[in-house]
Design a protein around this nucleic acid. Sequence first.
DNA 1: CTACAGATTGGAAACGTTCCACATCTCTGA
DNA 2: TCAGAGATGTGGAACGTTTCCAATCTGTAG
Lengths: 337, 337
Amino acid sequence: MVERTRNPTIIDVANRAGVSKSVVSRVFSGRGSVREETRQRVLIAAEQLGYVVNAVARAMVAHRTYTVGAFVRDASTAFYGSLLTAMQERAAFHGYRVVTATGSGRFAVADEYRALETLMMLQVEALIVCSGALPAAQIVPFAKRLPTVVAGRPETHESITSVFCDEEEGGAALADHLVDLGHRNVAVVTVAESESITMAPRTAAMARRLRQRGARVMEIHGPIHDAEGRWATETLRRREITAVMAPSDRHAVALMEQLQLRNVAVPGDLSVTGYDGIGDLATPLIGLTHWRQPIDLIGSRAVDAVVRLLDGETPPDHHQALSGSLVVGRTTAPPSR
Amino acid sequence: MVERTRNPTIIDVANRAGVSKSVVSRVFSGRGSVREETRQRVLIAAEQLGYVVNAVARAMVAHRTYTVGAFVRDASTAFYGSLLTAMQERAAFHGYRVVTATGSGRFAVADEYRALETLMMLQVEALIVCSGALPAAQIVPFAKRLPTVVAGRPETHESITSVFCDEEEGGAALADHLVDLGHRNVAVVTVAESESITMAPRTAAMARRLRQRGARVMEIHGPIHDAEGRWATETLRRREITAVMAPSDRHAVALMEQLQLRNVAVPGDLSVTGYDGIGDLATPLIGLTHWRQPIDLIGSRAVDAVVRLLDGETPPDHHQALSGSLVVGRTTAPPSR
DNA sequence: CTACAGATTGGAAACGTTCCACATCTCTGA
DNA sequence: TCAGAGATGTGGAACGTTTCCAATCTGTAG
C-alpha cells in the first residue's frame, strides 16, 4: 500500500546534512556558491531522504511557473493531437511546460471561457489558444493580462498574436489542380462557420477560385454521413458533378466511405480532394489528394512567439501565415466525360 | 503590449471590500459561512479587480494539487493521444487535472525517469504510467510514494495497479479467424520487446494459437519499411505464405503500402490483419481486419483506479484485463490456393 | 433585560521555497 | 602579521493562500 507520509522538505535535508536551509536551496536551485564538500553532503542527505524539489513552493515565491497554458477545444482529433505534441516538444526545448485545458467538446463558449480561467488559476505565464471556435472578443480580456497567441487560425485583432496556415493558398491550389485536370462542374462541401472558423474561409477560397477559372460550383452542406450519403450521391450524379472538394481529410474520407457503399468509383466516377494532411488519413494507402498543412510548424512557431513575448520582445511577425503544400494522390483524375 | 503587473491577491480584494482576507478566502473556497451581503461585496470587489484564485498558493497550504501525472512515452501516436484524451476527460469528471510528461521519444530509460521526477516536483497526487517500455523496476520507487497505475500494459508487480487489454485474447482471436478462413501458412511480424512491451506477448499469442491449430508460422522481424519491403514480399511469395499478422494497425498499413507498390493484392494474394482499432486507420475505407482495443475504457478505468487509491480504497481489481473485439474487414479472405 | 447559542468576522500561524542582508571563514599580498 | 576581498554559510522575511481560534455580533428564550 501507498504510505501517505509528508514529503521531506528542504529543512529535513538541511538538518540531516548539518547545514542551513539556505545552502540546500542554493544546491538545488543552482544559484549562489556552495563549497564542493558541502554540496556533496547535501546531495547525499537528499538522496537518502528521497527529497525532490517542490515546484509548487518554488513557483509561489519565484512568481514563475515556467508553464504555458494551451487551450484546445477537442484534443481527440489528429489535428489538435499533433499540434499539442509539437507545442509540448518545443516548449520543453525552451524550458517550459505545457498544461492543457480542454473545452467541453460541445461548442459551449461558457465552458471554454471557464477552461481559460482554470489556466489562469494555475498561474500559467502565457496562453496559446487552439480553438477554431472561441471568438476573439472572449480572448482579448486574457490577452490583456498574459502573452497570448492564437494558433491554427487567423486572428486579426491587434492585441493578439497569431500563427496559422494561409487558407486561401490551399483552397486555391486544390481548385487549380482540379480545373487543370479538366473539371468544370465541382461540388464543395461546406461546414457551418460556428463549427469551425478555419474551414469556412478554406471552402470559400475553393469556390472562389473555381468560379474564377470558369467552373460551375455547387455547395453541399456537410458533413456527409449515413443519412445524407444517399441523397448526396444522387445529387452529385444528377448534377453531373465530376469532383468534390471536402473541407478536411476527415470529411473527404467520410464521403469516400459513402461513395464506396454506393459503388461510385474514385477517381473513376468522381474525383475527391481533402485538406490537412495530418495524422493517419494521409497514408499513401488511401492516396487522398489533399493540401498538407505544416502542423508541427504551427505548434512550434506558436510556442516560439509566446516565448519571445515572455522575454519581452515583440515577435517579428505579429500574424504569421505559414504555407502548406499540395499532395497529389490517387483520388483525383481527369473527368471521365 | 502586455502589461506585466502583479496579479491582485486576496488581500487586495479584502481591502477593497472592507473585510479581512479570511472572509475573501471563505467566499472563494466555499468553506465556512459568510453573510450574503458581505459575500456580494467581496464578489463585486473581486470582479472589479479581475481577481482569480491563485491555485499555486492554494496547493501549497492545502497540500493538494488535484493533479494526476500521466507519463506517456510518445504522445504523437493515435494510441497515446486517445488514451490521454480519455484520461483527461475522466479525471475532469472526478475533479482532477492531468498533467503530462513525455519521454524523449527515443527509448532512453534515463530520460523517462527524469520525466517522472518532473511530475513529482509538480506535486502530482498520483501517477499513471502509459509507457510500453519503462520497466517495472523503474516504476516501483515512485509507486512506493504515490498511488500509481500502469495503463495499457499488463504489470504483475504487486505494488503496482494496472489496467490493460488482454493481449492473449486478441492475438488468439485473430489467429482463429485466419485458420477458420483456411490459412495454414502464416507470417507474424514481430517487434523487439525493448521497443514495445505490449506487442511481444501479442504476437507471441498469435504464433502460439496458429501452431496449436496446425498452421505453419514464420516470424518476420518488423517494421516493414521501404528497404525491407522488397525482401519481405519476395520471402512471403517464396514461402507460399497466404496471410500476414501485424502487431498493430500501423504496421499492417505500412506493410500494405509495400504490398501495393509491388502489386500484391490484399486479400487476393495475401490476407493482412492489424491490431488496435484506434484512430483513423480503423476507417471502413481501408477496411482492415483487426482486433479493437477499448482504449477509452483503459483510460477511464485507469483514472478511476487512481482516484480510488487516492480516496484510500483499494481498487476492486488490482490488475484489470479488459477485453476487445474482433473487427472483420476486407483485408482477410480465404487463401486463393 | 440578561444570558446564551449560533452565525459571522478578524488575526495569526503555517505551508516550502527563494532571496536578501549579514556574519564568518579562507586566502592573498604587502 | 594584518587588512581586505571573495567565498561560503546563516537567519529571517516574503510569496498568497487556508485554517484554527478567539472575538464580536445577532437573535431568542427566559
